[in-house]
Nucleic acid binder design. Structure first.
Length: 512
DNA sequence: GCGTTGGGTAAGGGTAATAATGCGCA
DNA sequence: ATGCGCATTATTACCCTTACCCAACG
């Protein structure tokens, strides 16, 4: 059976309102009404999850950035003048995956097991090419890679919360050793940077909780004085928070910075309240900037001309809270996340709208794409599930409906990168198609009950899970061993209308 | 002696996750 | 008055860069 038949039958049927909610288990639920001339239109965004990984064949194409230590400012300026750019800020998941994979490769190649041996036990001479090797493919200067690796493998990092006993001991050690963080850390079993950071949160006289008016006034006075501006002018940087904290006296530098940037700066300069509508405005503004990477966003610019924005830093945290509504957002390419967020926010209707006894809603519940290993994911494309649904309304009349959901929205929902539900008109056998051109016959009965059968190569590393909440059944397994499984039971039994619950997980096994 | 390599340290701006608190509402 | 859900605020472990330092080596 060929796949060409399917392409001819692809149509885009749409509904006009969609609500996105999140379940307690992190799943995203998309609600939309099933009846009438309703439309969902989502634009197709094509991508592969592994698109950022370079071809290993091009090893000779090594960025000078990842091989440069940047000992001096001149080194750096030289590279900048040659037109080189590199990434700064937080490492993305892709970068971390690549780094880990490089490290694994290096370790394996030398018949070793634990990278920590190389990092902490070997002499410089012995690990000579280590950092340059693991920096391959990363557009970060060598020292940034070096620091990242050290942090990752130092088990005196990531120890967790400081206990009251530790805090007391830390205070004593601080008295005794001053700023000798390495010594203090060694005595506490923590890294030097960890104890240094913890000390920054403490002052001899440090209040917690709500700020008094007097404290707020001292903070304002200090900031305006140190920034050298008139009271009432916005100040969002350029002051030493340690110096501010010294003047305030009762709060740490972190507390001062946080209080100022998230509240007092805005209050002092007469800011207005942020409204829900502005969430969408923010997404629009970010879309307009048309950047490839979130790190390229200039929050100072974005924050401009908005009286309800408390500070660029505050706006960034606002964006973060919007973004986090999408589970698994970290795994999505930036442009996909943005596009999907924008479309979903624009089409969003309040939960429950359009529902009720006479207007049953259709719920399509989807979960994230899951990988069972941290290695770079294989590209997963062109998964198509043709689907026709027949259901009965409250009056007992039968109604046949066809639905297409397009990829962009589903990507936003952390689904397979390319995933179509599309109608083909007649009940029968349909196809679930993967990138590897493996055809999985999907049969559909008029109950409607969807069954999945499979005929793919036993060597395929993919697993498919189909899950129906309407009858609690789950199919899980290797496509090769797929049996048929009812997905939907008689929808008329459900008083709220047809509940279509479809969970597709694409599991990728560790590469050999 | 001097430049280069390959680190190393302290300081400080920042992020992101979570805990605590406030608030509207039934 | 109370408890609940949600929003806001506060806290803090952790992250990253910068500026400067240093020893070994050719």
């Amino acid at each position: 059976m060929s796949t060409g038949e399917d392409e001819d039958s692809v149509t885009l049927e749409s509904v006009n309102s969609v609500t996105l909610t999140q379940d307690s288990d992190g799943s995203i639920i998309l609600h939309c009404p099933p009846h009438g001339n309703t439309h969902i239109i989502f634009h197709t965004v094509t991508h592969t999850l592994s698109s950022t990984r370079e071809d290993p064949q091009n090893r000779e194409d090594i960025s000078p950035v990842s091989q440069a230590w940047f000992t001096t400012k001149e080194d750096k300026d030289t590279l900048v003048n040659k037109g080189h750019k590199w990434k700064q800020g937080m490492w993305s998941k892709e970068e971390i995956d690549l780094l880990m994979s490089n490290i694994q490769q290096y370790v394996k190649g030398r018949g070793m097991e634990d990278p920590a041996e190389i990092i902490f036990e070997m002499s410089k001479e012995e690990r000579k090419d280590f950092y340059r090797s693991v920096a391959w493919g990363l557009n970060r200067p060598l020292f940034a890679v070096y620091r990242r690796v050290l942090r990752m493998y130092d088990n005196r990092n990531h120890v967790g919360k400081y206990s009251p006993e530790e805090i007391n001991k830390l205070k004593e050690l601080r008295q005794k050793h001053g700023n000798d963080w390495a010594t203090i850390g060694a005595a506490l079993g923590r890294s030097a940077s960890s104890v240094k950071d913890r000390c920054r949160l403490m002052k001899d006289t440090c209040n917690t909780g709500k700020w008094s008016e007097e404290e707020e006034r001292r903070l304002s006075d200090s900031v305006y004085a140190l920034a050298g501006v008139c009271p009432g002018r916005a100040v969002t940087g350029g002051v030493s928070w340690a110096a501010v904290a010294d003047l305030v006296g009762t709060r740490s530098e972190k507390q001062c910075r946080s209080k100022w940037l998230n509240y007092l700066n805005w209050k002092q300069s007469g800011g207005t309240e942020w409204t829900k509508d502005q969430d969408l405005s923010l997404v629009h503004r970010i879309v307009e900037l048309d950047v490839d990477d979130e790190n390229e966003l200039k929050w100072e610019e974005l924050a401009g001309g908005w009286s309800s924005v408390r500070s660029p830093q505050w706006l960034r945290s606002k964006w973060w809270s919007i973004k986090r509504q999408v589970a698994n957002h970290k795994e999505l390419p930036f442009h996909v996340l943005l596009k999907g967020l924008q479309e979903l926010m624009e089409t969003q209707v309040p939960l429950g709208a359009g529902t009720g006894p006479g207007s049953p809603s259709l719920q399509i519940r989807v979960t994230r794409l899951e990988e069972c290993c941290s290695s770079p994911p294989r590209p997963v494309t062109a998964l198509q599930i043709p689907l026709q649904i027949t259901h009965l309304d409250s009056a007992g009349a039968s109604d046949t409906e066809t639905i297409t959901l397009n990829t962009a929205a589903l990507q936003t929902l952390q689904i397979l990168p390319s995933f179509h539900l599309h109608p083909t008109g007649t009940p029968g056998t349909y196809f679930l198609q993967t990138a590897a051109n493996q055809s999985l016959p999907l049969s559909l009965s008029s109950n409607p009950t969807v069954t999945l059968t499979a005929s793919s190569s036993p060597s395929s590393p993919e697993h498919i899970i189909l899950h129906s909440l309407s009858n609690g059944s789950t199919f899980s397994g290797h496509p090769h061993e797929c049996l048929s499984e009812p997905l939907f039971q008689n929808p008329s039994l459900n008083p709220t209308g047809l509940v279509l619950v479809l969970v597709v997980r694409h599991l990728v096994n560790s590469p050999v």
